[in-house]
Amino acid sequence: MTKQNNKQDQTPFPLGRVGDGLLSIKNLHANIGDKEILKGIDLNIKAGEVHAIMGPNGSGKTTLSSVIAGREDYEVTKGSIRLDGTNLLELAPEDRAHKGIFMSFQYPVAIPGVTVTNFIKTAINAKRKAEGKEDMPAAELLKMIREKAKLIGIDRSFLSRSLNDGFSGGEKKRNEIFQMAMLEPKMAILDETDSGLDIDALKTVANGVNKLRSKDNAVIVITHYQRLLEYIVPDFVHVLSDGKIVKTGGKELALELEAKGYEWIK
C-alpha cells in the first residue's frame, strides 16, 4: 500500500463531508519555530463520538492537542479550528476552555499551596465569570465535588491535598479526569492519559471517562498504544504520521496497528 492510497482511504471518510461537527479542523498547518510539525490536518468530530489519534513518536500528536488548546509555543500558519462554529484560533487558551475545550495533560503541573478543591473552584468560577454569572454557591460546589469525586472514585482526603504535589502518576491522571468531570467540557482531549499507568489505574481512569461520555460531548484520545482503547472504545481511529492523518478507520484499525506496528502504514 502506498502513501497515495492511504490518502485516498481518508477521502471517503464520511464525516468530512456531512457539514461541520462539534469540532472541525481544516487544513491545519502549525510550526514550532521554523519547523513545520502539522502539515495539513483535517478532522471532523461530532457530538457523542470518540476519536482516537494514534501515531509514532514525533508524528505531531501532542502538537495537535496543544494547538487545539491554544498553547502559544506553536504558530498556526494555515487552516482553521472551529468549535460549534466558533473560530478557536482567535481565542486565548482560557477562552477556549470557557467555550468547552478540555485537555488532559500528559504531565500535569504541581501547584503547592493550592488544594485540588481551591483550584477547581477557581477554574469553575473563572468560567462562570466569563459567562457573566455569579460565583457558584459554596454548597452547590461542594455537592458537585462530592458527586464527581464519587463518580471518578477518588477519596475525599485527596481533595484537600496540594494540586498534583507529590501525586503518583495514577493520582495525577485521575485528578485530570476529576477536573474534566467538574468542568463538563464539550470537547475533551486526553493526551497520552495512559502513559505511566498500571492496568488498575488505567481501568479507573477509563471508567471515569466512559461515565462522562454523553450525546452532547466528544472525546479525542491521543495514545501511542492500543491498550487504553480496550477500555475507551473509539468510534474512529486516525493514524497520524509526519504531521498528517494518513489513515482513518474504525476501532479495528487500532488492533491492526498494535499487531503490525506503524511501519506498514507509512
Binding site: 486565548a92 482560557e94 476552555a97 501547584i111
Partner: peptide
C-alpha cells in the same frame, strides 16, 4: 507550562500568574 496548564482550565492569565506566585510564596 504551569501557566498554560492553568489557562487551559479556564483561569485567566493574570489570575494564573497570581496563583503561581502565591504558590511560590506558600
Amino acid at each position: 507550562d504551569a501557566l498554560f496548564y492553568m489557562r487551559q482550565r479556564g483561569i485567566p492569565e493574570k489570575e494564573a500568574k497570581a496563583l503561581l506566585l502565591y504558590a511560590f510564596t506558600n
